[in-house]
Design a protein around this nucleic acid. Structure first.
Lengths: 240, 240
DNA sequence: CGAAGATAGTTAACGGTGTAAACTCTTTGA
DNA sequence: TCAAAGAGTTTACACCGTTAACTATCTTCG
């Protein structure tokens, strides 16, 4: 027979799963609806989530972990020797998921209430996956990275002790400029996908993926993808 | 004595104002709270908004109009002969406002429920202000714009009949590539500000404005601001 | 002018929500 | 074994969006 801790963990999982299925189905994420789904009463959920906000946060973390896995999976469809293809496949997967799951995307990535930095950094977050992919790309292509001395001193200080991306603590100091490249690339991807998802732009441009393609094109230069661009563009056409 | 239509319009305004003040104050935007604010009962509001969603939309439009005005005001602090300074001042104002009013920003710019394209295009929207500023800049600087024939044919077709930005219908066809430049620039600004606002990045980078500065720097080239960059960077330092 | 109708507002009510309190069982651990 | 801890329940409260029925008040037009 299962121990208490086991059933508790199982229930915890069922709660998050039920909550996720609700928001995926486009329904309201409410304590009572989750309880109904699990044949429980709403107050029982307070044994697992301190508040409604807390439940939302749990769901957000679960979704983020899931999309991180999807992104990693899309990347894994290409060989490790082709980090450029991996990166592009991951980016396309992220975009496709966001456009197809606007409510979930909003919950995780544009939620004012969920404190993300503190929690998402602890777990396997989507942003971290991109950090890893970009790092792998750099290991192969050796695109130029700024020297810390070329950066604003304050900024250089931050790069010496990076907070948000992957665990690059073992990256030697003279190539910590990579973190900056990384954050800038993430900002482009995140920004483009968010704009496309929330539609503050001509919808036809979104539908045909022009904005996304242009963003990738822009990044090709700084990321040393120029020589490979025709092949990667073809890959993009195929995936979009 | 005021006619019926007048009092109605006044009440309408008071409703939106009260609703705005609620979300500005960080409170929940609820029909009953708005009614309370105005010494009314909640059902009375149904004479002015068809539903709660409708009220939210009204507030979103009001906020958008307000930030559009702020942006225009910030631009107007610089002479019309200096469109570059105008553009930068406007961008900084947009960013500052977003960071200082996350809830309102989310309501207007990353709201899944509010259909923005259809409604925001009709009124004076924030995006449109930037279109105008960028157009003014182009008139002075004549930064290069792509020929429609250089663009993807589908994309070129969209540019011939632009939907979202300003009323550029009187722009001759051989410079409609400007619309594309415009949408791309907006995507950079929107994306950067959204990322900074929702904090999926190292908060220290946001606080010091490095990401925003880098974004502006990136845009300087394509927008023909290179020669002016030192001056504009100084302006940026001053405004941030 | 005066009656008919439209309009702004009310009260009452319904079902749904988050959450607290008090209460049962059942499991755990000394 | 027995007391403490834990999972879940019922009950209750205040709040929410929304509808229906009703009352004034203003407008309009014969």
């Amino acid at each position: 027979m299962p121990t208490r801790a086991q059933t508790r963990a199982a229930t915890q999982e069922r709660i998050v799963a039920a909550a996720r299925s609700l928001v995926t189905a486009g329904n309201e994420l409410t304590l009572r609806a989750v309880a109904r789904e699990l044949d429980m009463t709403a107050p029982a959920l307070y044994r697992y989530a301190a508040s409604h906000q807390d439940l939302v946060k749990m769901v957000a973390l679960a979704i983020d972990a899931d999309v991180a896995e999807r992104v990693a999976g899309a990347a894994a469809a290409h060989p490790a020797e082709d980090p450029a293809a991996r990166l592009i496949a991951a980016a396309v997967e992220f975009r496709t998921w966001a456009l197809g799951n606007r409510a979930e995307f909003a919950l995780v990535f544009t939620n004012v209430d969920v404190e993300c930095i503190s929690d998402l950094t602890a777990t396997a977050s989507t942003g971290m996956r991109f950090s890893e992919l970009l790092f792998a790309l750099w290991q192969q292509v050796q695109f130029p990275i700024p020297a810390l001395s070329d950066l604003d001193p304050q900024l250089a200080e931050i790069m010496r002790d990076p907070q948000v991306p992957a665990d690059l603590t073992d990256v030697p100091e003279d190539m910590r400029g990579l973190v900056w490249v990384l954050e800038r690339a993430w900002s482009r991807l995140y920004g483009t996908v968010t704009l496309e998802t929330f539609g503050h732009i001509d919808p036809r441009v979104v539908a045909q993926g022009h904005l996304f393609r242009a963003m990738v094109n822009d990044q090709a230069g700084p990321l040393g993808l120029e020589p490979d661009l025709p092949r990667l563009t073809a890959l993009l056409d195929e995936l979009l």
